[in-house]
Amino acid sequence: MGQIERLADLVVRAGVNVQPGQGVVVDSDTAHLEIARAVVEAAYRAGAGWVEVIFTDGPIQRSAVDHATVEELSASRPWALARIAEWRAAGVASIGLVGDPDPHLFDGADPARVAARRHDEVRARRDAMFAGMRWSLVAAPNPGWAKQIFGEPDVDRLWAAVSTAMRLDSADPVAEWQARTATLAARAKQLDALELTAVHYLGEGTDLAVGLPPNARWTGGGLIDHDGIPYLPNLPTEEVFTSPDRRRADGTIRVTRPMVIAGQLITGLRVTFKGGRITEVWADEGGDVIRAQIDADEGARFLGEVSLVDRDSRIAKAGIVFHNTLYDENAGCHVAWGQSFPWSVEGGLAMTPEQRVDLGLNQSGVHTDVVIGGDGITVTGTGPRGTVDIIRDDEWVL
Score class of each variant (00 low, 15 high):
340 S>H: 05
339 Q>A: 15
302 F>L: 09
355 Q>G: 11
302 F>P: 06
362 N>H: 09
314 R>V: 02
353 P>I: 06
279 T>L: 06
333 C>W: 03
329 E>Y: 13
295 D>P: 07
323 H>K: 01
276 G>I: 08
348 G>C: 11
348 G>N: 07
333 C>K: 08
276 G>L: 03
314 R>P: 15
351 M>G: 08
268 G>C: 02
294 I>S: 07
289 V>E: 02
301 R>M: 03
283 A>V: 00
344 S>A: 15
357 V>S: 15
285 E>Q: 12
285 E>T: 14
314 R>W: 13
327 Y>M: 15
305 E>S: 08
337 W>V: 07
282 W>V: 02
339 Q>H: 12
274 K>E: 02
287 G>Y: 00
302 F>M: 02
275 G>M: 10
278 I>D: 00
314 R>M: 13
315 I>C: 07
323 H>L: 11
299 G>L: 11
319 G>Q: 10
326 L>K: 05
361 L>M: 04
359 L>P: 09
286 G>I: 06
348 G>F: 07
343 W>Q: 14
281 V>G: 05
273 F>C: 05
318 A>F: 11
313 S>C: 08
309 V>G: 03
328 D>F: 00
308 L>T: 06
297 D>H: 02
289 V>N: 04
360 G>S: 04
321 V>C: 09
333 C>L: 09
342 P>T: 03
298 E>M: 13
319 G>T: 14
299 G>T: 08
314 R>E: 12
343 W>A: 15
347 G>W: 13
294 I>P: 03
297 D>T: 04
307 S>Y: 02
275 G>F: 04
334 H>F: 13
320 I>M: 11
337 W>E: 11
271 V>S: 10
328 D>C: 00
288 D>V: 06
281 V>F: 07
347 G>H: 14
336 A>R: 15
267 T>V: 03
286 G>S: 10
315 I>G: 07
337 W>R: 05
302 F>E: 04
283 A>P: 03
282 W>Q: 14
323 H>W: 15
341 F>D: 11
353 P>G: 08
363 Q>R: 14
350 A>I: 01
319 G>V: 15
300 A>I: 09
334 H>K: 09
324 N>I: 02
341 F>M: 12
351 M>N: 07
339 Q>K: 09
355 Q>S: 14
291 R>W: 01
289 V>H: 06
302 F>A: 05
329 E>D: 09
356 R>E: 05
291 R>G: 09
282 W>S: 11
328 D>H: 05
292 A>Q: 01
317 K>M: 01
304 G>F: 07
361 L>A: 08
290 I>W: 06
284 D>K: 01
321 V>A: 10
351 M>H: 00
339 Q>V: 08
342 P>S: 13
285 E>I: 01
302 F>T: 03
327 Y>H: 10
354 E>T: 15
275 G>I: 12
315 I>P: 03
341 F>E: 10
353 P>F: 00
339 Q>P: 12
294 I>F: 02
307 S>A: 15
268 G>E: 01
302 F>D: 06
293 Q>Y: 00
325 T>H: 04
355 Q>E: 14
276 G>K: 04
292 A>R: 02
343 W>L: 14
305 E>A: 09
338 G>P: 11
363 Q>C: 02
339 Q>N: 11
350 A>N: 11
312 D>P: 02
323 H>V: 10
277 R>Q: 13
324 N>L: 06
